[in-house]
Amino acid sequence: MTVLELRGVSKVYGEGSAQVHALREVSLSVGEGQLVAVMGPSGSGKSTLLTIAGTLEEPTSGDVLIAGEPVSGMGRDDRARIRRRCLGYVFQDFNLLAGLTVAENVSLPLELDGMPARSAVQCGLRALDELGLRGRAGSFPDELSGGERQRVAIARAVVGDRRLLLADEPSGALDSANGEAVMRLIRAACRRGVAGVVVTHDAQLASWADRVVFLRDGRIVDQTVPASGPESLLTPNP
């Protein structure tokens, strides 16, 4: 089932001669359990695509559907509800709240959505368990390494019944071992049914995705076709 669908989405900033076309007629659909990477240079529209997919911004034209529901018809409150309930974000700089413990950070989206604190914390601890972070539940973000902070951010992004994980250069601030650990976690979340979109300019990070789409000057210009299977690499050349 399709979790995220963009249909002919365009975004224009500014007016008249100062107009900037950040996205032009972008169509993209991401199914349950699928991880899609959006690759492109700075200024190609990657981050705009992510904020529009995350309902934080509205497209100038075109439609965004989350779990089949068109976002454009929704009021502010409904959009906020979708964000709290269905979407998780992972940013390059983690964006954890410094004054809250790891467990509180992870359970916060559920509490904001009206879940009683005790159940929210239980859900949060389950998410931490799955990512091997249970032992860090009582720590504060500044007591963690960069890699651990990003893993907490991923736990927060997938806590509860989140369907869509949106990540903006999630391993950008990490070394390659921690970057790989982060991508393994995102893959694991997708195997449990979450749909994922990662925007990046980093080919190593993008190569974790099932499908890579290439963005250039606000347009999707190309995408990788699903691989024939990794076994082909191990066959000696004829």
Binding site: M39, A203, Q204, A206, S207, W208, A209, V212, F214, R216, V221, D222, Q223, T224, V225, A227, S228, G229, P230, S232, L233, L234
Partner: peptide, 17 residues
């Protein structure tokens, strides 16, 4: 772009391994 796509596809296969 043709070459980039080919290379990223290869990288996807290696990453899967």
């Amino acid at each position: 772009q043709t070459h980039r796509r080919y290379l990223v596809q290869l990288m996807q296969e290696w990453t899967r391994l």
